[in-house]
Write a protein that binds this DNA or RNA. Structure first.
Lengths: 151, 151
DNA sequence: CCTTACGTTTACGTTAACGTCAACTGATAT
DNA sequence: ATATCAGTTGACGTTAACGTAAACGTAAGG
């Protein structure tokens, strides 16, 4: 199971201690079945998105029927709705970072293939141009506009 | 600046120690300008996506012209291209988690508004149904199919 | 029967990303 | 001149998510 999901046995035990999974025991030995696999998939997905194990448990607790107070359920629902909002901005973040990385890769390629490779011309220019222009347009700052020329 | 970005001054100093930002000094005092603001935006965006500060520095180092070896540039480019791939799956993760959370919220609402609120009927049923069905369809397992009935 | 190998528990170690506290240093207001 | 107050520099503390090592049980193979 550990290899299957590319996590260490230690991590599985850690999740068990935290109450995130509850593998069966067959004379002492842990046995992971379909259900634990499904849970682990959800746990890892949450982790990849930056959620803490405690965050994840606030969800799993509900799935496990460990939270039955209407009060508490609604409280957590509010949290989830906030999370959904955050995930939206996270999608936007992904798009922005993807674009930044792509254009950086392109510039690296251009430089690497430049027959007359000149280190000076690689980086002096419009590195942050796009970013900066956004800020200048939005006029976000009152600060004494520091020399935007030489970045 | 700290308040503006909703980070603590300590964090700003930490990023400076790590070499991620280089605020001007005006007789000892740190002065954050347009450039540092742009860098912070990128840093925080990276953080929101789960990147470590060291990850982020591998990008900023290049923008700062601190990496000029063609060898090293191409090595990092490979890393970035891998990151771009990861970001794609992260988008998919976001969609899945968003859907899961949404349907969970809906079920909480249904339960909370149920006039004859019955805790037993809330959670016993098809909690993982969708997830499980995917796995059963994909036939991912050789393991002795543990009782998929009682989740 | 012995050992080799694997799994378990307990407990301490580790890393990243800051928090917090103490001691100090100009700049400013009174 | 003194008090105050924000800002600076170490230095140590903290939390999450594991890693790692020690000590032990047990099932299989020769």
């Amino acid at each position: 199971m550990a290899d299957m999901l590319n996590v260490t046995p230690r991590a599985l035990r850690f999740y068990e201690d935290k109450g995130l999974i509850h593998p069966q025991r067959i004379n002492g030995q842990r046995s992971y079945g379909l259900r634990e696999r499904a849970r682990m998939d959800n746990i890892l997905r949450g982790k990849r998105l930056g959620f803490s194990l405690d965050d994840i448990r606030t969800v799993l607790d509900i799935y496990d029927g460990k939270v039955l107070s209407r009060e508490e359920l609604l409280r957590r629902k509010n949290g989830f709705e906030q999370l959904i909002e955050d995930l939206k901005t996270q999608r936007d973040d992904i798009d922005i970072v993807t674009e930044n990385l792509s254009s950086l890769c392109a510039r690296i390629d251009a430089f690497a293939n430049d027959p007359a490779r000149d280190a000076a011309t690689f980086m002096n220019a419009q590195a942050y141009d796009a970013v900066l222009r956004r800020y200048l347009d939005d006029e976000l700052f009152d600060e004494p506009a520091v020399s935007a020329a030489r970045i």
